[in-house]
């Protein structure tokens, strides 16, 4: 089944910055008397991610996907095995779920400064960086190592 092998290739993929954010921010060594800088943007990120993951929108998408499974059953099939085994039903559920996942990613990207929706404190303090951020995800400032991670994705 071609769809199957495609997924094998896709998973696992190399992590993005977001995938290890909690390690960079919560692990690693600290020295008590040292000051840790303000992490305003990250607090926003965590809150946003939680809202999206557990949001009513996500639930409604799941419910909708379930309901479409019902439609599949009503219109084209009368047998229970077909209801549960149908390839069409599977891809419907998948589309709904992908959407949910992407909305988390987008929120996170915004919070980390990958998108335009950056936190305001930053922009007030560093207005000169606005043009750079307006460009679609400038990668020119990333290190070579980081870029190679990207390519693996």
């Amino acid at each position: 089944m071609s769809a199957y092998s495609e997924e094998v290739v896709r998973v696992p993929r190399a992590g993005s910055l977001y995938d290890v954010l909690e390690l960079i921010l919560d692990r690693g060594m600290v020295i008590d008397i040292f000051v840790r800088i303000s992490l305003v943007g990250i607090e926003i990120l965590k809150i946003d991610a939680r809202i999206v993951v557990a949001s009513v929108d996500t639930y409604l998408r799941f419910a909708e996907a379930c309901n479409r499974l019902d439609l599949e059953y009503d219109s084209s099939s009368r047998t229970v095995p077909e209801l549960f085994g149908g390839g069409v039903a599977k891809s419907v559920g998948k589309a709904g779920a992908k959407k949910a996942v992407h909305s988390v990613g987008d929120t996170v990207k915004k919070a980390v400064g990958m998108g335009d929706g950056d936190d305001e404190t930053q922009e007030e303090e560093q207005p000169e960086e606005r043009p750079r951020k307006a460009k679609p995800r400038s990668r020119s400032t990333e290190s070579g190592r980081t870029r190679s991670h990207k390519e693996e994705r």
Binding site: L17, V20, I24, L39, G41, E142
Partner: peptide, 13 residues
Amino acid sequence: LRARRRDLMAHQG
């Protein structure tokens, strides 16, 4: 200094 993408990248890189 804030936990921004560019600086997080610089730290890790």
